[in-house]
């Protein structure tokens, strides 16, 4: 998978035409992605989140995470993974930003707390000053080749934005006003993260839905593709947890959710939420968790699709 700069430009250039990449990325992107020996430099920053999407990424099956790290991207900054500590680590951000100006990819995991002038989240020290997450994003976003939000906190605000949003959390696109490729989910599925990165690197921009998520993963309604759909159609409903039947009466929010979980499953395909007998909580959607709360209560009737009898 490791490409020479020449191979990379050839593949990427050709696919760019095919995929019709134009406006979403700045024009320097193709050049940019060939920057670091064929591996695009990635700065992965963490905001108001829990590291769960990074842990989820570790569960990628093919390619393996070691292949992602050593062959696909050049992960120059990632607080959970990188060897460096303190200044040794944090200075890397500024070195990469300068060396690869306009050519680096910023991945954000976690939301952006904006209340109290961003004071709820500091991410390191630079030149003897505390750096707030908002400062770092203001510094990095204008000269990035691409911005990627991983997880529902980074895409839409997610859990820390839950009512009453005590720290004024915003998603990456909402905060920057820029186009961001959104890979939502609490956590995001490793295939969605890796698939989006690989899609961008080898085939250009994926087709996106109205929330700027790749349609490849978020294009289908979860309820419509649920293996329990026949229970739903036939009127067999679980009335308590661990019953057989469609889980809609015990809180499943599948009709609200757009994600390919029923087809893809999780953790090497061994299971998925509905497979474990508890309803979907629509963790990929804007306004999660409030739109899905109470999580074990039935959706209002007008949000439940008609049964075709």
């Amino acid at each position: 998978m490791k490409l020479t700069r020449r191979q990379f430009l050839k593949i990427f250039g050709a696919s760019a035409v095919g995929a019709g990449i134009t406006s979403l990325y700045n024009p320097g992107l193709i050049e940019a992605l060939a920057a670091d020996d064929g591996k695009p430099p990635v700065i992965w920053i963490q905001g108001s989140g829990c590291n769960g999407c990074s842990v989820s990424l570790l569960n990628t099956v093919h390619p393996k995470i070691s292949e992602v790290l050593l062959q696909i991207i050049s992960l120059r900054y990632h607080p959970t993974v990188m060897a460096g500590t303190g200044k040794t680590a944090f200075d890397v951000i500024y070195e990469v930003a300068e060396e690869f100006k306009g050519k680096y990819i910023v991945v954000l995991e976690g939301g952006i707390p904006t209340a109290e002038e961003g004071g709820y989240c500091t991410v390191g020290e630079h030149n003897g000053h505390h750096v707030k997450l908002t400062d770092l994003i203001d510094f990095l976003a204008p000269n990035a080749a691409a911005l990627v939000a991983v997880g529902t906190c980074a895409t839409f605000g997610g859990i820390p934005k839950g009512k009453p949003n005590p720290t004024g959390v915003k998603g990456f696109a909402e905060y920057t006003g820029k186009t961001v490729v959104n890979v939502s989910g609490c956590p995001a599925h490793p295939d969605w993260i890796v698939g989006t990165l690989v899609h961008v690197l080898l085939f250009g921009m994926p087709e996106l839905d109205k929330h700027n998520r790749p349609k490849l993963f978020y294009g289908k309604n979860l309820h419509d593709n649920c293996p329990n759909y026949s229970y739903f159609a036939n009127g067999k409903f679980a009335e308590k947890l661990s019953d057989d039947g469609c889980l809609i009466n015990i809180g499943c929010k599948g009709p609200m959710a757009y994600a390919d979980c029923p087809l893809r499953h999780w953790n090497s395909g061994v299971n998925w939420c509905i497979g474990s007998g508890t309803g979907c909580i629509a963790c990929t959607e804007p306004n999660f968790p409030d739109a899905a709360s109470p999580m074990y209560a039935k959706l209002p009737e007008d949000m439940i699709p008609n049964r075709i009898v």
């Binding site: 829990c50 590291n51 607080p79 303190g86 944090f90 020290e125």
Partner: peptide
């Protein structure tokens, strides 16, 4: 001052 302490949650 060591900030950030990396490789933790």
């Amino acid at each position: 001052s060591i900030d950030p302490i990396t490789r933790i949650e």
